[in-house]
Structures are given as structure tokens and as C-alpha cells.
Amino acid sequence: MSKTVILFIDEQQTEIEAHIDYLTATYGGRSFYYAQTSSKGLEYLGKHYQQIACISLDLLMPNFLLRTEDRERYALEGLYLLKVIREEYPSIPVVCYSFIKEEFANEFIKKYKAEYIYKGDRNSYRDLLKIFDKTLSK
């Protein structure tokens, strides 16, 4: 089965809107799936993992397990998710697209072999699109 879908797991859709519109214009409306929470992302992943070319994962998401507003725990939700994805679906490329500064999550991201793009960077948009184009055209 060919890999034709980019999975976005991000709490804030407005932050990835430009990427979504790019994918729709270039590859069609079925080339991406947007999940607002970890659970929805995992649910989709479980059902369609064979079609997923790449995952764009936000590390800053509300933690539905801990139900807390603490920023440090808020941040860890994405890291938990990265570990789960790596263990369950080791062959799917993951790009952590987040506002969390790299040093904080660097060790973890390296350990679980993901790429990292800082959302606050001017070139982040193009960098992420390059990865999408590369994985979708494989």
C-alpha cells in the first residue's frame, strides 16, 4: 500500500493551516489528516498506519491524562506520544514541530530518532514542506 497521508497531531490548527492548504493544493484533500489530540492521532494511526508517510507532532499539547495546566507537564504530552509512536510504528518518520526550545527535548528526540523543527523559526514552514514533499514522493 502506498504512503499518501501526512498526519498532523497538533492542538492548534491555525499553526499548521498553511501546511494543510499547501498539501490540499498540491496533493489533494486526502493527503493529510488532522488530529487535535493525542488520542485522536493514535486512533487514526492504529487504523491507517500503512498509509501514513510522515507524522508532524506538536510537543506542546494539553495532557488529557494529567489534566493540568502546568506548562512542564503540558509539554511532556508530545514526548510521551513520540515514545509510543516509535515503539508501535518504528518505520514512520516523525517530525517534532513545536515551540519548545530544542535543548529541552533534544535528548529525548534524538533517542527516539525524530526530526525537530522549531515553530518560531522563519524557515520552519519551508523546512517542513520539504520533508512532506520528500516523503510523499517516495
Binding site: 492542538e11 506542546l60 519548545i100 535543548e103
Partner: peptide, 22 residues
Amino acid sequence: DYTSIARNAINPLFVRIDSLLA
């Protein structure tokens, strides 16, 4: 360690923008 690093790792204004949009 994680708690103290994380506190400085995120710009609080980004979190604020997120909550306004939500």
C-alpha cells in the same frame, strides 16, 4: 531538572496566543 528547564523553554506569549485562538 525538567521542571526548571521547561519553565524557560516555552515563551509564555505563545501559550497565550494559543489560548486566545482556542
